[in-house]
């Protein structure tokens, strides 16, 4: 298969052990860990293939959302009451129990919206990188994707094939 000019290369494997071997071989050949990705049809335990854990910042999103939401809740409750103070029947201006209801809703609104946005963003969806893919991955095959492999494609292909790749896909 002609692979000249391609930026990324995908090796398809049938066994997880082969994927681990391929990643070892690619790293030994000088490919950076950040340029190696495994594509699977279900989550494998972290580090199963010897890959370095990919950091994501999903957990930051709900906190930012919650902070924005509670600020909005405070603005609606305390802000409006203080801006337009109307004392009714000598009761306190700020009524804490219903304020907590409103602030809770505001906090949850922000946290939930930001979490959904965070999941989409941190999953990099839609995945429009243009890297090679093979539908057999969804049928149980495993893929090792080497990105930024321009100029070193033959080397990458050799490492993938030596590890037992059943097919090589380029784009």
């Amino acid at each position: 298969m002609a692979i000249s000019g391609a930026q990324a290369i995908l090796g398809l494997f049938q066994e997880p052990e082969q994927v681990a071997q391929a990643l070892d071989a690619l790293r030994a050949a000088g490919f950076a860990s950040r340029d190696l990705k495994t594509l699977t049809d279900s989550p494998y335990p972290e580090g199963a293939f010897g890959e370095e854990p990919e950091k994501h910042r999903l957990f930051v999103f709900p906190f930012i959302g919650a902070a924005c939401g509670i600020a909005l809740g405070l603005l609606i409750t305390i802000g409006t009451q203080l801006a337009y103070p109307i004392v009714t029947g000598g009761k306190p201006l700020l009524s804490i129990p219903p304020m907590i209801n409103v602030m809770y809703e505001g906090t949850m609104l922000g946290a939930i919206m930001f979490t959904v946005a965070g999941i989409i963003f941190e999953s990099r969806l839609p995945y429009l990188t243009g890297t090679p893919y093979d539908p057999r991955i969804s049928e149980g095959y495993l893929g090792v994707l080497v990105t930024r492999a321009s100029g070193r494609l033959p080397e990458a292909e050799r490492a993938l094939r030596d590890a037992g790749a059943v097919d090589i896909v380029t784009k």
Binding site: K37, T38, L39, T40, D41, S42, P43, Y44, E46, E51, P53, E54, H56, L58, F59, P62, M108, A111, I112, T115, V116, G118, I119, E122, S123, R124, L125, P126, Y127, L128, T131, Y133, P135, I137, S138, L145
Partner: peptide, 27 residues
């Protein structure tokens, strides 16, 4: 659909999916 743009299944995506479902579930 078997389109890569829908869900290629990188390790990062699985991590985010599993963590995200727990966070959303808690909410």
């Amino acid at each position: 659909t078997q389109q890569a743009s829908d869900w290629p299944g990188t390790g990062r995506q699985w991590d985010v999916l599993t963590a995200g479902l727990v966070v959303l579930g808690a909410f």
